[in-house]
Amino acid sequence: MEEDPNGKHPMSATTHIHQTHTLSHEGNGRKISVKVLRQSDPRGGSHWETFEVPYEPGMNVTTVLQRIAANPTNAEHEHSTPVAYDSCCLEEVCGACTMVINGRVRQACSALVDSLLADSPEGIELRPMTKFKVVRDLFVDRSPMFAALKRIKAWVAVDGYHDIGPGPRISPREQDEAYPLSRCMTCGCCVEACPQFNDHSTFIGPAAISQAILFNAHPTARVERDDRLAVLTGVGGIVDCGNSQNCVKVCPKDIPLTTSIAKAGRDTTLYKIRQWFGR
């Protein structure tokens, strides 16, 4: 067998992973200007604060915020505090670090500084999402989105968790339709971009509508289909959608939100007709 002679790993521990992963901190002494809309608590007013952050090749906005946390001195050389923001996976699968970056709602982790600067060389501007209560700085309270998932019963109501064999057969085509919808991270980009989702309206928002459609398509979850359609027919439901189609443009996971909304429109109409005729 022509396999590798084992034990030929004479590299000493002075060769490190981190050497290879530490991208240059130099960046030619260049600094990037980062303007952050800050607010110390939900009641307080907001103000802008600018930081000058040393540029690093390949850096993203979460790196920028990490560097500010480690050295919270603003552009006026005043001592400040780390910027509060929500973050977790930094791979754009958890949805936590959503904020408004140079006017566009998106995840901070996948916002690369090079491409931001290419579009606006003057610097980077960070604001919290506007459709949610600010907790502090860039950190907002998105609990209404999770509450909406509860309202539309976004779950498969199985009998229990005992072993009773596999689930229903699902064709690759059905899977192909369900999987994109199921990638929704509840990040809030769609509701941030939606003109109908605001303080004056009770609109449930594109994410929740799309989840209702996802579960209504599942063979088992369909048993609660009418409960979901009742919510979408009610106050803050599908009729509040103004069809601006902003949601689908900002979704980081390219979820076909407007297709879901169109389906929801059709399904709620049929639901109302069925209601009219007593099912």
Binding site: V158, G167, E174, Q175, T220
Partner: peptide, 13 residues
Amino acid sequence: NLLDRLGVPFNRT
């Protein structure tokens, strides 16, 4: 099987 019943969109044959 349980995860399948819970609606996980597993890839299909």
